[in-house]
C-alpha cells in the first residue's frame, strides 16, 4: 500500500510539471502586452488564492480581509522603492516582513473567533487598512496613490516588460504551488484539516490548534503580500481602489468556486474567474450581470466547486469502468 501512495505522489508532480509547462508556453502563443498583463494578474491571483485555500479550505478559517494583505504588500513595495530608494527586491522582502508581522498581530486575537465572527473581524480589519491607505496621505499618496514603482532586476536584467516580469511571476507561482502541495500532504496539512474537522479532537491529538491557525493565517497573508508586491511592479503604481472589500470577496469566491480543501482547486478557481472577468469586460454594462448569474449557476450546479465537480465525475466514470467491484475502499479513496 505504501507503493500506491508513492504512485499517487509522483502523479501529482507530473501535474505540477504539466501545469508549469503550460503556463510557460501560453505567453509564447499570446505574445501581446494586453494578454501578458492578464496572465500576470492570473498568476498573482493564483498565488493569493492558494494561500487563501490553505487558510479556508484546509484549516477552515474564513477571511474576508485578504485584500488588506494584498494592499499591504503592494504599498510596502511601493513605499520602500519610491520613497526610500530601495531596490525592488528589498521592496518584496519588506512586503513580506511587514505583511507577515501585521498578519501575526491580527491573527492572535482574531483567530480566537469562530465562523462568521472571524469573517467580520477580518473584514473590519481590512476596511480599517483600506481607510488608512487613503488617509495616511504623506506615505501612501492618498487617493492619488503612488507612482513610479520600479521593476526588479537582476545582474543588469530588468523584469521591466510584461513578458519579462511574467518570467519572475511564473517562477514565484510554481514555487508557491509546490510549497502548498508539500504542506497539504504533510503532517502540518493534516493538522490544519484536523482543526477544520474538529478543533476539540485535533487538540486532544496534540495539535496546538491556536499555533497552527496563526501559522496558516500568517502564511496566507504573506502569499497575498507577495502577490501585492508583484502587482505593484507590474502596474508601476498602487492605489487604494485595488484593495477594496470587493477584492477580498472576489478572492474568496475564486477559492470557493475552484473547490476548497484542494490546492488544485485554488489554481482552477483563480484561473477560471480571472479569465472570465476579463472576457466579460467586453459586455460593458452587462458584464457584471452575467458574472453574477454565472456565479450563482456555478454554485447551484457545482456546489463543491469546479475541482469537486470534476473529481466526482471522474469517480463516477471509474465506478462505471470498474464493473467488478474490487476493494470497496479504493473507490472512496479519492475524496
Amino acid at each position: 500500500m505504501t507503493s500506491g501512495r508513492r504512485g499517487r505522489l509522483n502523479k501529482q508532480w507530473l501535474w505540477v510539471g504539466l501545469y508549469a509547462l503550460t503556463m510557460a508556453i501560453i505567453p509564447n502563443v499570446l505574445a501581446n502586452n494586453y494578454y501578458m498583463k492578464m496572465l500576470i494578474v492570473l498568476a498573482i491571483n493564483t498565488i493569493i488564492v492558494i494561500g487563501l485555500n490553505l487558510l479556508m479550505g484546509y484549516a477552515g478559517q474564513v477571511s474576508l480581509g485578504h485584500a488588506a494583505f494584498y494592499g499591504i504588500g503592494a504599498y510596502s513595495s511601493a513605499i520602500m522603492t519610491t520613497k526610500y530608494g530601495m531596490s525592488a527586491w528589498l521592496g518584496i522582502v519588506a512586503a513580506i516582513l511587514v505583511g507577515g508581522l501585521v498578519a501575526y498581530l491580527i491573527a492572535i486575537p482574531a483567530l480566537r473567533l469562530k465562523g462568521h465572527y472571524l469573517a467580520m473581524a477580518t473584514l473590519g480589519f481590512a476596511e480599517i487598512v483600506h481607510i488608512l491607505f487613503i488617509e495616511l496621505r504623506e506615505i501612501t499618496g492618498g487617493t492619488d496613490g503612488l507612482y513610479g514603482v520600479p521593476a526588479p532586476s537582476i545582474a543588469g536584467f530588468a523584469f521591466d516588460t510584461p513578458q519579462r516580469l511574467y518570467v519572475l511571476v511564473w517562477m514565484v507561482l510554481v514555487i508557491c504551488l509546490v510549497m502548498a502541495l508539500n504542506i497539504a500532504k504533510s503532517r502540518v496539512g493534516r493538522a490544519l484539516r484536523a482543526v477544520h474537522g474538529s478543533e476539540i479532537a485535533a487538540a486532544s491529538m496534540g495539535v496546538d490548534t491556536a499555533k497552527y491557525k496563526i501559522q496558516v493565517f500568517v502564511l496566507s497573508g504573506i502569499l497575498a503580500c507577495v502577490g501585492g508586491s508583484l502587482y505593484a511592479s507590474m502596474a508601476g503604481y498602487v492605489s487604494s481602489e485595488s484593495f477594496t472589500l470587493t477584492v477580498s470577496i472576489t478572492l474568496v469566491t475564486m477559492a470557493v468556486c475552484g473547490g476548497m480543501g484542494n490546492v488544485w482547486g485554488a489554481v482552477i478557481g483563480a484561473s477560471t474567474l480571472t479569465i472570465m472577468q476579463e472576457y466579460l469586460k467586453s459586455y460593458n454594462d452587462y458584464n457584471l450581470v452575467i458574472f453574477g448569474a454565472i456565479l450563482i449557476l456555478a454554485m447551484v450546479f457545482m456546489p463543491q466547486g469546479i475541482y469537486g465537480a470534476f473529481s466526482d465525475l471522474a469517480k463516477k466514470l471509474k465506478h462505471r469502468l470498474q464493473a467488478i467491484p474490487e476493494t470497496a475502499g479504493e473507490q472512496h479513496a479519492a475524496s
Partner: peptide, 10 residues
C-alpha cells in the same frame, strides 16, 4: 458565495 453572486447580479 451564491449570495455574493446575487448581490452582484442585483
Amino acid at each position: 458565495i451564491v449570495t455574493v453572486g446575487a448581490s452582484i447580479l442585483f
